[in-house]
Design a protein around this nucleic acid. Structure first.
Lengths: 251, 251
DNA sequence: CTAGGGGACTGAACAGTGTTCATAATAAAG
DNA sequence: CTTTATTATGAACACTGTTCAGTCCCCTAG
């Protein structure tokens, strides 16, 4: 905690410059400020000017430390992973480890506003993030699933988690803008589905009561379980599609 | 088919105004123009002004027919589904029907530039699109899977398809901007993975040769198969989580 | 035929965006 | 103290979505 507005005492030799030891602008501080704006204004209003204003600095100063807005977003994406822990692989409990991984990932994506929007469209293939990918692959690989299944399982999981969290945050945004609650919105949606003409929409009407749950947790868990069962079903099978490239169509 | 540039024959009484029967601006024509811009410039450069220019019209004229840019994007999203056919449900072949649905959806998403970006962040819960959801649910429901699994299966499938296509188009964009080819980019990526220090990244190094395929088709099919196997595994089981709301954690 | 009402369209403006660049201020090095 | 390199500034450019007073034109009523 520094106290910026204190006058300089006369017995200290006053430094020549007006702002003694002003906090230097760094990539870290810029990312901090960007997250402050993201929390307060949301992804769509996150602009270089807002970030600069938050730091009390001219816009162009940011470009000394950051190439692009894209560059800044990439830094924010990287920051998102900080402190995210993935355990040592345990072949006996790989499913529970993956479940835990997925839950914590979703939790993180929903912990701050619009984080899912930020994550969507980025790929964790940078040097800073590859360790996380490696550890996830280690956990999944311990299951003994075939190589080719393993190669896409990480992608599938993160696509599912990101997609799910994005949809959740879209609904959040929608009911925030409509000045109502998730409870109310959910009720309206389910009533809408129930009120459809049953002759033209028999399936939707029949599912109206469970299309949206009071909490999304159960839906998330079930989707996760579906993927896990799918992955597990390949354990013990030989690597599928060794002759791949020809035989994926038609049949 | 009207023929706009034909001169007015002299035996027809010429209308008083200079531009005889000028094409009226409609929502349809605006969406057409928007797709022209999307194809030519990409999603990020799709702006109201570009659309207006394409139509030879002032920007503000668009706002007579379209509330928002969001409104226009919604119209484009709806247009995407036009002519998309989903077959009558056949309980014997629901898996093949779903595979076919997914392949055609991906094909459509990749048929035009940045269509996946457009699709991401939209939900097909509008009156025009509900019939498609209904038909998909019919096909899935014919499998006999439990209600709660059915309720999220559609979401899971479209999340997977959209996410996969989005990732594909992201790579496309990346190698377009780098002025190289997918073949080259893929080779570089795989070489990069292979060149990682094997002691810190044993799993990534071991998978380097199949992290990215020459074509993404096989990866898409395999991911689809994983979901299908997961879904199929629930057929015959009682509806899971009837006591839901409490018991989805820990155990 | 004229008068007028109403919808479609225009042009200009507002407030905002990402990015660049010559210039100024500052810090470190000689 | 002077030089040099870095960092920050302010103004500018070329855009963006959106609004609004006014204009044009067509159709209808008288």
């Amino acid at each position: 905690m520094t106290q910026p507005d204190m006058p300089t005492p006369p017995w200290e030799r006053p430094p020549r410059r007006r702002t003694p030891a002003r906090v230097p602008l760094t990539r870290e501080r810029i990312v901090d400020a960007a997250f402050t704006i993201l929390d307060r204004e949301g992804y769509d209003r996150l602009s270089m000017r807002q970030v600069a204003a938050e730091l009390g600095v001219a816009v162009s100063a940011l470009y000394v430390h950051v190439r692009d807005k894209d560059d800044l977003l990439q830094l924010m994406y990287t920051r998102m992973f900080e402190g995210y822990e993935i355990p040592e692989p345990d072949p006996e409990h790989w499913q529970e480890q993956v479940r835990d991984f997925a839950r914590r990932a979703r939790e993180r994506l929903l912990s701050r506003r619009d984080l899912a929007k930020l994550a969507m469209g980025h790929v964790p293939f940078t040097p800073e993030l590859l360790p996380y990918v490696e550890r996830l692959m280690a956990v999944l690989g311990a299951s003994g699933m075939p190589r080719r299944v393993l190669a896409i399982s990480g992608d599938m999981l993160s696509t599912y988690i990101n997609g799910f969290a994005l949809e959740e945050s879209l609904w959040q945004q929608r009911y925030r803008e409509a000045h109502t609650s998730w409870h109310k919105l959910r009720e309206e949606i389910n009533e809408y589905f129930a009120s459809l003409p049953p002759d033209r929409f028999p399936n939707l009407v029949a599912l109206a009561d469970i299309m949206m749950d009071e909490s999304n947790d159960y839906r998330f868990e079930l989707g996760l379980e579906i993927i896990l069962r799918g992955l597990a079903s390949y354990i013990g099978e030989p690597d599928p599609g060794e002759e791949h490239g020809e035989t994926h169509g038609e049949s």
